[in-house]
């Protein structure tokens, strides 16, 4: 690039940098406070002020968490459902979105309406449970993956991205004799890396954080997902719920304390942070492919 920045523009850069750094600190705080809490020893975790650094460092909670087997089975189950969910959702969402991106597809408006309707109306818990039960999916990972396979929101977002891909690219491919399927696989999909990455991130995080479906559909403890395990630890520390309290008393469970709670929160977020940079790469990659083709 030959473009040179003027002095004012450099000033703006500095301001932007400063603003972003402040923003970073502000948004980092809740996460940081959980890290601090997870490393805090014992009662210091109960404090009314800010948590900027641990007063007494302790790795006890991490040691406990690492020896807690259900956490790791939960991890495994969550990874399975997330990977399965992301891959299948991407495939079927893209398959559905591509035809709808053709404005002159027969009955396009009807199809879109049919799709949109599902975003706004649902039948509630009971029919969904009955459906899963009658399909024989109870206690299986498919009960967590299949119901959310097509979400109107994702389809519409993807459809709109496909529409923004220059029609001329497709036309030239068609002139070369390629059918729609080949165009879809070899042209549209590679060009759509940014939107695929976005949707993957959305549904990936959605699957990672989901717990209610697992609670309802999965009764085998060894198949429970991470978030259910985490909730269990959190509830064990909940003193406001009387029933939970009585149960705790009858089982003589001691409070596991705030450190363990924060530790499991941190442990559940970290994989997301590790994965993110890999996804982020595709935001940039999409542009480069686009530039070469263009």
């Amino acid at each position: 690039m030959t473009y040179r920045k003027s002095l004012t523009e450099k000033m703006i850069d500095v301001l932007l940098y400063a603003g972003m750094i402040v923003l970073m600190f502000v948004t980092l705080y809740p996460f940081w406070s959980q890290i601090v809490l997870s490393l805090e020893e014992g009662a210091s975790a109960y404090s009314t002020g800010f948590m900027l650094y641990p007063h007494k460092l302790s790795f006890e909670a991490y040691r406990l968490a690492f020896h807690y087997t259900p956490l790791w089975t939960g991890y495994l189950n969550t990874i399975v459902r997330t990977v399965l969910g992301v891959v299948l959702i991407l495939v079927f969402t893209a398959l559905t979105a591509y035809p709808l991106s053709k404005k002159d597809l027969p009955f396009n408006r009807a199809f879109t309406g049919f799709l949109l309707f599902t975003m706004l109306f649902s039948g509630g818990l009971i029919p969904n449970y009955l459906l899963i039960k009658n399909l024989g999916l109870l206690n299986s990972v498919w009960s967590l993956v299949l119901p959310g396979m097509i979400s109107a929101f994702n389809v519409l977002i993807m459809r709109n991205f496909f529409r923004s891909i220059p029609e001329s690219l497709e036309e030239s491919a068609r002139v070369d004799g390629a059918g729609y399927l080949r165009i879809f696989v070899s042209l549209i999909v590679p060009l759509s890396a940014p939107v695929l990455a976005t949707v993957a991130l959305w549904v990936g995080v959605g699957h990672w954080n989901a717990w209610f479906d697992s609670l309802i559909y999965i009764s085998d403890g060894r198949k429970q997902v991470l978030q259910v395990v985490l909730r269990k630890i959190v509830i064990e520390n909940d003193t406001s719920n009387l029933n939970a309290m009585i149960q705790k008393m009858s089982t003589n469970t001691k409070y596991t304390g705030r450190q363990l709670q924060s530790t499991v929160i941190i442990l559940s977020i970290i994989p997301m942070l590790v994965v993110y940079p890999f996804v982020q790469k595709y935001f940039v990659k999409g542009v480069m492919v686009g530039a070469i083709k263009g």
Partner: peptide
């Protein structure tokens, strides 16, 4: 075993669903 979880709200929800679906 009947397996459930330790969350009273969830236990209740699940029980309602089980009864409603005939199990």
């Amino acid at each position: 075993f009947y397996t459930s979880t330790n969350d009273p709200d969830a236990i209740r929800e699940k029980l309602l669903l089980q009864i409603a679906s005939g199990e």
